[in-house]
């Protein structure tokens, strides 16, 4: 996956949970309903995703932005969180950029087996595992100045 999508939409939202619904609605519309509505010929074209994959997209975006809000909350960073989305013929790319303290992506544990009691301790931390399960590509770049998550969703 190459860097910043050059076309598409960009949102800059305050790092508060109340804005999650807005982000999901905008990204969902950009990748699904809005594109399918077909505003005619020209740039956008048909959405590559069926409604089920749009739902997956909304979910992984929600996870990424939730993590971003949490990360900035840890250090009280008021910066807006950037959400960029590009809809191509065969995929949708989303990038979420925060200004949190960063973390080691390799240190995030995978989910323990469901048969173990350990599983019920996971009231949080499911988000990264969900992103990897649902997205066709999930990259995390993290450093002391923040974290960038890139997600790619292809047709089911």
């Amino acid at each position: 996956m190459s860097g910043v999508p050059s076309t598409g939409i960009e949102l800059a939202v305050p790092p508060h949970p109340e804005f999650l619904q807005l982000v999901r609605a905008v990204i969902g519309a950009a990748a699904g309903a809005g594109a399918r509505a077909g505003t005619g010929s020209g740039t956008g074209g048909e959405s590559p995703l069926d409604p089920g994959r749009v739902a997956d997209l909304r979910l992984v975006v929600s996870e990424a932005v939730t993590n971003a809000i949490e990360a900035q909350g840890v250090v009280g960073a008021p910066d807006r969180i950037l959400v960029r989305c590009r809809v191509d013929d065969d995929q949708v790319l989303v990038e979420v950029v925060d200004h949190g303290p960063g973390f080691d992506p390799d240190a995030v544990p995978d989910l323990p087996d469901v048969e173990t009691p350990e599983r019920l301790r996971h009231e949080s931390g499911l988000g990264v595992a969900l992103m990897h399960r649902l997205a066709d590509g999930a990259e995390v770049e993290s450093g002391p100045d923040g974290t960038t998550v890139r997600l790619m969703i292809r047709p089911g």
Binding site: Q21, T66, H122, E123, G125, G127, L130
Partner: peptide
């Protein structure tokens, strides 16, 4: 209408 891992976390927490 929608649930994500933050929502599931509360459901798991309620069970516990």
């Amino acid at each position: 209408d929608f649930v994500d891992s933050a929502g599931l976390g509360v459901v798991v927490g309620a069970l516990r």
